[in-house]
Design a protein around this nucleic acid. Structure first.
Lengths: 164, 164
DNA sequence: ATACTAAGTTCTAATTTGGAACTGATGTAT
DNA sequence: ATACATCAGTTCCAAATTAGAACTTAGTAT
C-alpha cells in the first residue's frame, strides 16, 4: 500500500494523516512554527538525514503546506515558509504540545511554556465549541455522517444497482 | 535511531510523537474514540496487518493510552479501552479532523460532522485561551522556556563545569 | 589553490512494514 | 465426531522505507 492513500480515505483524519502523519513531518512543522526556514537549519535542529529532510520538505511543498521561495540568486538558495494551509495546522501542534505537557513532562516540569500575546497568560489553550463557548471533551461530541459521506454512499448504491 | 526516542526529547511534541506519531496509531485511536474495542474490529476497520495491529496496541498499552481488559474467560478474550490519558488525546484528533475538513475535504463536503451535545451545533471546535476566551492562532502564542528546560540547562551547565 | 557554505543527491546496509498463512482454545452446525 | 467458524494473536518471507555517510554543484572567502 502506498502511504499517499490510507485505508478508504473517507475520513478527514485519514486524509490529514496521509499528508502530515509520519514521524518527521510534524517535527519539521514544529520547527517551521518556531521560524526555522532553511534546509541546513532544519537538518541541524532535527538530526534528520538530509535525504529524508529533502523528501519531506518536497512532500510538504507538493501538498501546499510549505512554500519554497528563493532568498538569493547567486547561487540560488531557497527557504521554506508555512502557507495559510500550513499555519492552520497550529491547533494540531498545540494539541500535541498540550498533551505532551500534561502526560509526558519530566519531573522538572514542562520544557516550553506558551504565552498568549493577547492576555499574557501562560496556559495551554483548550478546545471550545465556537457556538456556546463550552470546553469540549471526547464525549461531548457526536460524530454523524456529513454531506461527503452521504454523497459517497449514494454513488456506491447506484454502482451496485448498475451491477445487478 | 530507535523511534522510542526522537531527537533530544526536550520537546513535548517529540515526546508525544514518540508514542503517538506513527501513521497507524492515530487511526487506531480514532477508531477507539468511535468505540471500537476489539482486535478483529480494529483489523476489519483499518485493514492494518494483524502483526502491525498487535504491535501498535501493545505499544499503546505500554504507554498507558489503552487498557487491555478481559471481557470473557473461556476462551480468554480481551478488549482495548482508552484510559484517561488516552481520552485526553481528543484535542489532537479533533484538530486533525478540523484541518482535514477545512483543507482536504472532497468536493462533496466533509465526510463526518461533529455535533456538540451541549448546544446541538455542528461546527468544528476551535482553540481558545482558557483565560481570555479569545480564539488562538499560530502567531498569537509566544513560546518561552519553561521549568523543565531551565532545569535541564542548569544540569548541562554544571556538567560542563565539572569537565573543565 | 584551498577551504567553506548551502541545498541537495546518490549509494548501501539496516530497519520496518505488508501479505499471507498458521496456532490454539473454544463454540456451533451437520 | 467431524467439520467449520471465531477471536486474538504469531510466524515467516518479500517488499518498501529509512539511516548513515559520502559526494555534487555553484558561488564566496582567505
Amino acid at each position: 500500500m502506498r502511504w499517499s492513500e490510507i485505508g478508504d480515505m473517507t475520513c478527514s483524519i485519514a486524509r490529514a494523516l496521509s499528508v502530515v502523519g509520519d514521524r518527521w513531518t510534524l517535527l519539521i512543522l514544529r520547527d517551521a512554527f518556531l521560524r526555522t526556514r532553511r534546509f541546513e537549519q532544519f537538518q541541524a535542529s532535527l538530526k534528520i538525514t538530509r535525504h529524508r529532510l529533502a523528501d519531506r520538505l518536497q512532500k510538504l511543498v507538493d501538498n501546499g503546506i510549505l512554500e519554497r521561495l528563493p532568498y538569493q540568486d547567486n547561487p540560488p538558495r531557497f527557504e521554506y515558509k508555512l502557507t495559510a494551509k500550513g499555519v492552520d495546522l497550529y491547533p494540531v501542534i498545540a494539541a500535541l504540545v498540550g498533551w505532551g505537557d500534561r502526560w509526558m513532562a519530566g519531573k522538572d516540569g514542562v520544557p516550553i511554556e506558551l504565552v498568549h500575546r493577547g492576555c499574557g497568560h501562560t496556559i495551554a489553550p483548550e478546545f471550545v465549541c465556537p457556538d456556546c463557548r463550552e470546553p469540549i471533551g471526547a464525549r461531548d461530541m457526536l460524530a454523524q455522517p456529513g454531506p461527503g459521506l452521504l454523497a459517497q454512499r449514494k454513488k456506491r448504491r447506484s454502482a451496485v444497482k448498475r451491477k445487478t
